[in-house]
């Protein structure tokens, strides 16, 4: 019996090691190839550095400072707005009593099934009729709410006992005061989780940018990276430099705040 447990342990450890290798190789390739020339990328993929390594690939990404700035701008506004609308929405869905509440929330949840491509044509027409085509505001508007974030915050709000709110209500406090002074301070962890998820989502968001932005000077980072696909640029060095720029901020965020990522996913899974 013990020997069988030992064997299964050894087997598990081997699987873990192989998988770690498979997970790390693409990241290693991105980070090292970003500094290599085209020959070394293919001839010496395993080398951390070669004598030819340098920053030349990054120097070719002339438009990228602009793309990075655009991404920071759009991500910032989307994240802040989502945090606001998700927390007030969650409050309305969990702490206020009104007719049709559960029906509308069900509608919210069901909309998670819809692939964005299914509704993109009318959405595009609405954005265009607002005169927002080819603006950053278009991306911010279509992202002004988050079903996932609302759901996550609502789940947390439901764990706050109503008696806590009742005493404030009996003292005549307005709902907005209760929301701001009592409920929100208790929800710091779940708010941080939603903040991180929104940040990650918008930093990586690709499809809306692809549809709504055409001016090169407005492109966000993920859209900027399609320059390589559409303009048939076959040089891999600059591509990896761009990929590195796009993954490093999220990796740093993840490594320092992984607790929130894991919590957010676990919370959505168990109670879902």
């Amino acid at each position: 019996m013990t020997s069988r447990i030992k064997i299964s342990n050894i087997l598990s450890n081997i699987i873990i090691l192989i998988t770690s290798f498979v997970v790390l190789v693409p990241i290693f390739i991105i980070v090292t190839a970003a500094f290599k020339n085209e020959v070394d990328i293919f001839e010496r993929p395993a080398a951390l550095f070669t004598e030819n390594s340098g920053l030349f690939n990054f120097q070719q990404l002339e438009m990228f400072p602009r793309y990075i700035w655009n991404s920071i701008k759009v991500t910032f506004f989307c994240t802040v707005i989502q945090l606001g609308t998700a927390s007030t929405g969650a409050y309305a869905f969990s702490k206020l009593k009104w007719k049709g509440r559960d029906t509308i929330f069900l509608l919210y949840l069901m909309s998670m099934m819809i692939p964005i491509q299914v509704i993109i044509i009318p959405q595009f027409m609405i954005i265009r009729s607002f005169g927002l085509y080819d603006t950053h505001l278009a991306l911010i508007m279509v992202a002004s709410f988050t079903v996932f974030g609302t759901f996550l915050i609502k789940q947390f709000f439901m764990t706050i006992p109503d008696s806590l709110l009742e005493s404030a209500r009996l003292d005549g406090a307005h709902e907005w005061l209760i929301y701001w002074k009592i409920v929100m301070p208790l929800a710091k962890t779940v708010l941080a989780t939603v903040l991180i998820f929104s940040f990650r989502w918008f930093w990586n968001e690709f499809f809306s940018a692809l549809i709504y932005l055409t001016s090169p000077e407005l492109k966000t980072l993920p859209l900027g990276m399609t320059d390589f696909v559409t303009e048939y640029m076959v040089y891999y060095g600059p591509q990896m430099a761009a990929a590195m720029i796009s993954i490093i901020p999220v990796m740093i965020l993840f490594i320092s705040l992984q607790r929130f990522f894991i919590q957010g996913i676990t919370a959505s899974g168990i109670k879902g």
């Binding site: 997970v23 990586n204 796009s246 990796m251 993840f254």
Partner: peptide
């Protein structure tokens, strides 16, 4: 480590 790929940019990862 195994979860980390999930947070990265699918566009950047596709290039790699």
């Amino acid at each position: 480590l195994f979860f980390m790929p999930n947070v990265l940019s699918s566009v950047g990862i596709s290039l790699a």
